[in-house]
């Protein structure tokens, strides 16, 4: 596995020259963006000054400028994004593990997402990007960014979309065979209501039976539902529970499910990763390093959860 020092060297040798080119392109794009923003600002100032003529003139001028500059601005912005992903993110994925392949526009399918049974709310809008597919050691993995939402109407009858899940969705082949379903979710009820929370969890009809595990720290952090009590414990060995807790400390809020001999992991995030900066320099090492750390966090799941250990019947 690659270390941060190795990445630092790789950045200096391979990435920095490409980032310089991209930075030049970003700078070309910037005046257009500034023009557009100034125009909007102009309209707003005229609007609040309550001068009808100034307002109309501002709209006409900005409308003409917008018609000329905007399509070009968006075209260039899109081109920059494609180039950034192809030249930087793709290269980074290859650097981390050459057996992994990257596609900037693909993502984990909605049926895979729904099959994980992690989120049971009906989806109205589903999008994603940055799909990575490949093998890490003996384990087949797939992950991408995802954003699933449902539609709702507020008090005034206006419809809006609310997030069901936003973050990274990871699927890997699990090292043991099993037939049932085991679902591990962040424990909110027990945190809020203590012992009473367990009673609510037992009554949850949309999930299989509650599985009470013997590790108190794990029980505090997660709630486990399973279709088979023995199988849930066969999957969640004391060692794996420790590993999941360690991983959660690094990654934040996580959801896991074990179905169809696979493990599904949803890592909740409140930002969009692997995107080029528009109003910051491309040569900002921190940003690229941040993307590298996220990639490593996900790729290391295989090691963190010990998925390459194949000492059971499944090869």
């Amino acid at each position: 596995m690659k270390t941060e020092e190795e990445f630092n060297r790789y950045y200096d040798v391979n990435l920095i020259s490409k980032l310089r080119d991209l930075e030049n392109e970003r700078k070309k794009l910037l005046p257009r963006a500034m023009m557009f923003l100034l125009g909007i600002g102009g309209i707003l100032i005229c609007f609040f000054s309550l001068n009808v003529w100034a307002f109309i003139v501002a709209i006409l001028i900005n409308g003409t400028l917008g018609a000329v500059f905007l399509p070009r601005f968006f075209k260039l912005k899109k081109a920059l994004k494609v180039k950034y992903k192809e030249e930087i993110i793709k290269e980074m994925v290859y650097f981390i593990d050459p057996s992994l392949s990257y596609n900037s526009t693909s993502f984990i399918s909605q049926s895979d997402f729904e099959n994980s049974k992690l989120f049971i709310k009906g989806i109205d809008r589903y999008e994603g990007d940055d799909l990575v597919v490949g093998n890490i050691g003996k384990t087949e993995v797939r992950f991408s960014e995802l954003n699933a939402q449902y539609e709702t109407t507020d008090k005034d009858g206006r419809s809006r979309y609310v997030s069901i899940f936003n973050g990274i969705f990871f699927i890997a082949d699990f090292h043991k065979d099993f037939v049932g379903e085991t679902i591990v979710l962040p424990d909110r009820a027990e945190k809020l209501f203590g012992k009473l929370g367990t009673i609510f969890q037992k009554m949850n009809v949309s999930r299989p039976d509650l599985v009470k595990l013997e590790n108190p720290d794990f029980e505090k952090a997660f709630v486990v539902y399973g279709s088979d009590q023995v199988e849930a414990r066969y999957i969640l060995t004391p060692a794996l529970m420790e590993r999941i807790m360690d991983f959660q400390k690094k990654s934040g809020k996580i959801y896991l499910s074990f179905l169809h001999s696979k493990v599904y992991i949803a890592i909740s995030l409140n930002k969009n990763l692997f995107e080029p900066p528009l109003f910051k320099s491309m040569l900002n090492y921190k940003l690229v390093e941040d993307y590298f750390k996220y990639l490593m966090l996900i790729v290391n799941i295989v090691e963190d959860l010990d998925l390459n250990t194949r000492i059971w019947s499944k090869n």
Binding site: V211, K212, Q229
Partner: peptide
């Protein structure tokens, strides 16, 4: 696992 389930 079955022993742990029994204990639970």
């Amino acid at each position: 696992a079955s022993r742990r389930a029994f204990n639970a």
